[in-house]
Design a protein around this nucleic acid. Structure first.
Lengths: 204, 204, 204, 204
DNA sequence: GATGAATGAGATTTCATTCAT
DNA sequence: GATGAATGAAATCTCATTCAT
């Protein structure tokens, strides 16, 4: 049903320059204020486009947010895949996933803020089909499956549960790091933090 | 708060019966729809009170949500404290905390849904002073401090990080359990799940 | 229909002292602000009574206003009748009516203000049956009829038209005198003003 | 004015068609019911526009009423000026003013009703600067000044008093004619009525 | 007589979304 | 692509009126 308009509203058709301006405005504004406190005119003005351009290419306020978020997360996915290249040892691969995520948080705290201010977990999930960033999550899943196959991961629980531990910890660490004022580097402690997680998910 | 009588708005003054009706309506509606899709008139009608009553005792839509949420979480705190009584062994105490949380999720999935649909992590934190439910979080913190004191917990990281692991995992497990359709009991796997977490946070 | 409540809400049953306080508050407040800008709580507080007392004895905001207005106009009627005593010459009687009205305006500008701020001509008329102050208007009418009978008044038009001229001029003079700042005495010019009116309504 | 955009709210910018519909609705509804009994939603529905359109172009309920009233009175002014053309004799000019007013009343009783139902004399005056219809009242004043200059008008009183007599009588005649059920034509008696007024204001 | 609480109604604002140009 | 205008919906606030104590 939503896809009926997909053909009409597709940010991909937008002039790349304009798109960047819009996505930056989204990041700036939605990270500062809650979703319902943000007016699309601010975004439009901030990006120097008309409201109609936004509606034409995104379709709705919600879609704008999720599409932009997806674009930003795409960068994380890209980076993740890039960094995973050439690492053979399984634990090292996972450690890398962990590190890239924390590193991304440190370099893009606004994205974390945006997610905390304006993204309802639930809505995000629902939009999943379109915006869940399969590249990102797919990479996670693939790395996990790999570990299970190699027999190094805990097999008392469903594979999804392992993902829950990883994501739960990563999200929470990112959030509190931002909320507590982005003091002392997250990545500097990455190894200690990862070892804790590793003990949780590896085969005991 | 634009409300001139913000100081006056206090749900505690409300007739207990009415309050329960309102809080139930909040739970029902906000768990189904996102914050900005909920109209207070629905809540009013659902609770059989007038809009004015809501504004008088809560002050605003946001305050209504957080006050109600706080009331529900108060139940969790109460239960938590109750269950902790008489358990001596430290690990057992933490296991209990873990179990009570999952048990609460299983028995009150709507609260989890409400948090996922309508509560921005950020706003929640900001409202902290008023609604963070010190009883609940205080209990967590106290149990943790206890463990540190006894030397059984990982001391390579800040105590807050331990809390992040626990909360991160608990929240994520609860959320995905609800989102994946509340299949198979969470508490049934509580021990396995807890042991994983325990390996993460205990002194290696 | 309205009279069904007459038995219930009747200002006459009110403690005279309280009634005076209420009527004074009505005068003070309704003369300063338009009807719909006046809150009954102000009146209640100003008169040191409870809202319920007002409702019990007056029945409604509108009734309160008209009943109070009627009480004040009663004073005009009383004074009018009093002053008319012992004047034989017809023209002199009418001149007196004219003078008393202007004198009343000068002494009670607030009543004029109240009528200008808060009384819709129409509503006043409709409430006529109850609040038209038959004593006052009855006196006018009687004096007029007298003049017609004596053959001194213009008989080319309906008697009511003569009343229209008198009332129209008196009301307008009163209103503009108040609005223009209550400068120079109205009564001082009463004779000149009356002679103008007399030329209009007397038989040419 | 609470309206932040008060400066923006200007009915003149409104689509003429829409404006006519709104003004007609205002006339219809405010003439039937008192100001505070009228809901703007009725007006909006009656004019087939949204509430927001009304607020955008008028700013407030009161402004809507006065702006509309002004528009209607503009028609009277126009007609007045038109009819005055080519009349040389001073008394005839004033007679014409008198007649046009009564004729307008006869043709637009709803406007009189609206003024009686919903316009507080006081508020109207205060809004004067904006809505007093300088064309209309200016014309009155100019005609009067003319008469004074020619020495045909009573000069024992201030010029404004002469205006008071004219307006007082005209308003009152119009009001009672409407209230008494709009029986027998007002204009048919215009001459007799005018001669009465003329005796009052002309030099004796 | 008084006090406190609740309600329905409606004024006013803000905003996502749509339409026409 | 952009601009301007209109709309429906809902947040918020104020108040007359009613009810129960």
């Amino acid at each position: 049903m939503r896809h009926s308009e997909a053909a009409t509203a597709d940010a991909a058709l937008l002039d790349p320059d304009t798109r960047v301006r819009i996505e930056r405005a989204v990041l700036d504004v939605f990270s500062e204020r809650e979703f319902h406190r943000v007016g699309l005119i601010e975004i439009a003005r901030g990006a120097n486009v008309s409201l109609q351009t936004i509606y034409k290419y995104y379709g709705s306020k919600e879609a704008l947010l999720f599409s932009s978020l997806d674009a930003w997360l795409g960068k994380l996915a890209e980076r993740m895949i890039d960094h995973l290249q050439g690492i053979e040892d399984y634990k090292e691969r996972l450690r890398k996933v962990f590190w890239v995520f924390l590193d991304f948080t440190e370099k893009n705290p606004k994205i974390v803020q945006l997610m905390m201010s304006s993204v309802y977990i639930n809505t995000w999930r629902k939009q999943g089909a379109q915006y869940d960033n399969p590249e990102l999550f797919g990479t996670f899943i693939r790395v996990l499956a790999e570990g299970r196959a190699k027999g190094v991961l805990n097999d008392q629980v469903d594979e999804k549960v392992l993902l829950d531990y990883i994501m739960g910890v990563l999200f929470r660490l990112s959030q509190t790091w931002v909320q507590r004022g982005m003091k002392d580097s997250l990545t500097r402690q990455a190894n200690v933090l990862f070892e804790m997680l590793w003990r949780a998910i590896s085969k005991p």
